[in-house]
Structure formats: C-alpha cells, structure tokens
Design a protein around this nucleic acid. Structure first.
Length: 298
DNA sequence: GCCGTTACGGTTGAG
DNA sequence: CCCTCAACCGTAACG
C-alpha cells in the first residue's frame, strides 16, 4: 500500500493514530505499509521515532523561560517522561538532538589487529587467546575500549589464522566508523542538522537572550547560564502567551508555514492540540531535509 | 500533583 | 536481499 505524500490526511492519522494520555496523537505504523515519504511526513506523530526537532526545541525553549516541565508536557502533548528526558539530555550535553539510532558499533577486529594476532600466533602457536588479548593491550595495539574479547580472538584464530594464513587482505576487511560513537552526539542521523536558533529572534544581538536555545546543538553554550530557569517562581507569562510570542517571531512571515503557525491560534483548544501536532511537524520537516522533499511536495 | 526512572513495544541501520 | 542485534525512540506506569 502506498500513500502519496500529498494525500496524507486526517483520515490517515485517524486510521493509524492513537491518542496518548495528554491528547496528543501518535501513530504506530508498520513501516512498509505506508510509503516512505508518508512515514517521514508523520514523524512527529510516531511512537518509536524521535520527536521532531521543532518540538524538542520548543521543550527546551519553554523550560528556559521558566515553564515547568509538567506544563510543557501538557501544552505540547508530550509525556512528561519524554520532556524530562529531553531536558535532562539538554542539560547534560547541550544538545536537543536525539541519539543516533541503529547501526553497529565500529568493529574492533580491524585488519591491523587481525594481522597482529596472526603474527603472535605464528611466533607462538601455543599462545592462548587471553594471552593475545593481554599482548594487544600491553603492546598498545588496542586499548581497553577496543580490545577484542577473548571469544573474538578465538574466532579470529579459528577463521582467519588457522585457515587463511596467507590471506592478508580481504578476509579482514572492515570499515571503521570512528565518528559514529566516539562522541556523544557527533552526528545527526536524519540528515544535516539545522542550526538550532530562533529565526528572526527579537533579540538577535544577544546570544543569551531567551527564547534562543544554544545556537549549537552539540557544544554547550558555555557563556550562557540561564539554565536552569532564572526566576522559577516569578514567571508570569502563560504557556499560551509564550507560544504566541514565539510564533510571532519564529516563523518567517512569508513562509507557507505561517498558515500552520496560525492554525494553533485557534480559540478551540481541541483544535489547537490537533493542529499543534501538525504545526510541529510542518515546522520540523521544514527545518531539516531528512531525505524528503520539504518544498513543493508539501 | 510533580518528576525521575523504567518496562515496553516500536524503529533503525551496520554488519 | 534478508536477518541479527544493539543502539535509540516515546509512552505509560510506578514510586
């Protein structure tokens, strides 16, 4: 079954959607049942997929403005556990991005390591796997983070040394991905990360001015210490006020997104909650190109 | 009522 | 091309 991106409607959301305890809609979709683009289109509504960056950013923005997590949770229709997790991560790493999903850790049995094991075995055929492991560490070929396990070494001895003494090349080919796991959130798994900042921010001259989150999603904004919120008890602006405030400045006035922005200015709260999901979706897909066309197709 | 934590069922992507 | 597996996700529930 294929659903054209231009034809995803409320009916699809109703068909596949579920409503969480806060009234937010999320969709639990078996991926292959819907066209790839459509899956991405409804990312913001998905369980098992990260919240869109727009929502994540909004969570952080609201928290910076002193809104309590429970209120953020209710307003954005996101579970408080999720809000808590995102804020905790932001607090710890300075990043609003989700972690890298999927993939495998880089292999430790690189050609270099395999060759070294082979040499050790050839020099001393009676050597034990655990002895090889110790040698790899002692000789500086590996460190404790990337030394192969004893079982891995045994497998190498069995498969690549015993049977393939002279095959120096292809059997041991591996691809390392040092960038993927070496830092906490070094890469953005869904395409190029957008610069996380409030477009058309009213106080563009101040990097510390709210509601701008850190303008770099990876490194913390070390010279801004407005986190946690400065005035926990004295915040007077309501969530709605702040959301309206942000809408005023976040969306380019000529953008087609303006329409979706205006959608949540409805006075009907139920309409607002539903529209907000769409709003966040449109905002997020407009912000990053994760393989889908964000232009004319929308 | 708030919030940190965790079980759960889900997706993802390298190997 | 399909499978496996370990990473991540958000929700719901618990304390």
């Amino acid at each position: 079954m294929q659903i054209d991106i231009n034809k995803v409607t409320d009916n699809h959301v109703q068909q596949y959607g579920e409503v969480n305890q806060l009234g937010g809609v999320f969709v639990n979709v078996i991926r292959n049942k819907i066209a790839y683009k459509s899956v991405d289109l409804m990312l913001s509504l998905f369980q098992g997929r990260p919240l869109p960056n727009g929502t994540r950013m909004r969570i952080v923005e609201l928290a910076r403005l002193g809104i309590r997590p429970c209120d953020i949770s209710r307003q954005l229709r996101v579970s408080h556990g999720c809000v808590s997790k995102i804020l905790a991560r932001y607090h710890e790493t300075g990043s609003i991005l989700p972690g890298a999903i999927g993939g495998s850790k880089p292999r430790v049995t690189t050609p270099k390591v395999v060759n070294y094991i082979r040499e050790l075995k050839m020099k001393d055929p009676g050597i034990f796997a655990w002895e090889i492991r110790d040698r790899l560490l002692a000789d500086g070929v590996c460190d404790k983070n990337n030394v192969p396990s004893v079982s891995s070494i045994s497998r190498i001895l069995r498969n690549k040394v015993t049977n393939h003494h002279h095959h120096h090349h292809s059997s041991a080919i591996s691809h390392s991905h040092p960038h993927l796991y070496n830092s906490i959130y070094p890469t953005y798994p869904y395409g190029t990360p957008p610069p996380i900042k409030s477009e058309n921010s009213p106080n563009t001259s101040s990097s510390c001015g709210s509601p701008s989150p850190p303008n770099n999603v990876i490194s913390r904004n070390s010279h801004c210490h407005h986190w946690p919120p400065l005035s926990h008890g004295s915040i007077t602006h309501s969530v709605s006020d702040i959301l309206n405030f942000n809408q005023k400045f976040v969306q380019p006035q000529t953008s087609p997104q303006l329409a979706t922005s205006q959608m949540i200015n409805s006075h009907d709260p139920a309409q607002n909650s539903q529209n907000y999901n769409y709003y966040m979706y449109f905002q997020s897909t407009g912000m990053h190109g994760n393989g889908i066309s964000t232009g004319a197709n929308l």
